[in-house]
């Protein structure tokens, strides 16, 4: 027992030192980046494994639609293989198969301007899915990531009725051979987790990592030195269905 406590204590010291280091690096890097070019600056959570996440951070993703390429599906494929959806054993059944993220092309009705963008859970600050969930299975983590606690999800699907983005899928059939860090099962609702297992491990979400067009930026919206915060300060960005006042964690640039 005492052994365990000692070792976690050590962890904490190491990581707080590391956090300082990263902050300094980020600051230096940020100063060096006049153009706001997208370099991964390691905006790290650097959270010891035994500590709870806090609202000191708010994770978000910025989508630059001007860089997102029509016909490219890299983020979607990366998400599917990371989390084990899409690679189902049965024949594809598009109406009932889960889709955590999808590529959508839209056209402005007035100007005919076309944009391609990925659409997934927008990780709202005030998520309607969590409001309507009878058991509290849908919830927002302190750091802003909206998740489904499948242990207490009863499969009523009210969250799917409530979501303005159709971001959620209901698992319509039995699933086997799940990925260890991405549990999924029949009769429960699921959606983009912002790759929470990666975020807790200081890594970027799979979609962000896979995007070869630098159209996706992941980071802490509350950290003014983070890449994402700087970009959002510099450029106009948009929330989808801003009229609903949900304060989404996923924002779009160039719409």
């Amino acid at each position: 027992m005492s052994k365990q406590i000692d070792s976690t204590h050590d962890d904490r010291q190491v990581s707080s030192g590391r956090r300082e280091f990263i902050k300094q690096t980020a600051a230096t890097a940020g100063a060096a980046l006049a153009s706001g070019a997208l370099l991964y600056t390691g905006e790290a959570s650097a959270k010891p494994a035994d500590e709870a996440v806090t609202s000191a951070q708010r994770w978000g993703i910025l989508v630059d639609t001007s860089k997102c390429a029509d016909g490219c599906n890299d983020c979607v494929n990366a998400c599917a293989s990371e989390n084990g959806w899409g690679s189902v054993e049965h024949d594809p059944r598009p109406k009932t198969d889960a889709q955590w993220i999808r590529s959508v092309t839209i056209r402005n009705k007035q100007t005919s301007a076309e944009h391609t963008l990925p659409l997934m859970c927008q990780h709202c600050e005030n998520p309607p899915c969590a409001d309507v969930c009878p058991t509290g299975a849908s919830f927002r983590r302190e750091d802003g990531i909206v998740l489904v606690d499948k242990h207490i999800c009863i499969g009523c699907r009210y969250c799917m009725m409530a979501c303005p983005y159709k971001a959620r899928s209901f698992v319509h059939e039995t699933i086997e051979n799940q990925i260890e860090y991405a549990p999924r099962g029949k009769g429960t609702v699921e959606a983009c987790t912002m790759c929470v297992h990666r975020v807790d491990d200081d890594r970027n979400p799979a979609c962000v990592e896979a995007c070869s067009h630098q159209a996706l930026t992941f980071g802490d919206l509350k950290d003014p030195n983070s890449d994402i915060a700087k970009q959002m300060k510099q450029h106009a960005t948009k929330e989808l269905r801003a009229d609903l006042g949900l304060n989404t964690g996923v924002r779009y640039k160039g719409l």
Binding site: A49, A52, V53, F139, E142, D143, H151, E180, Y181, D200
Partner: peptide
């Protein structure tokens, strides 16, 4: 519950 809701990811009592 700790892992799901608070992101506590110690391994001692984890199912994985």
């Amino acid at each position: 519950d700790d892992t799901m809701h608070e992101g506590v990811r110690t391994s001692r009592f984890s199912l994985k």
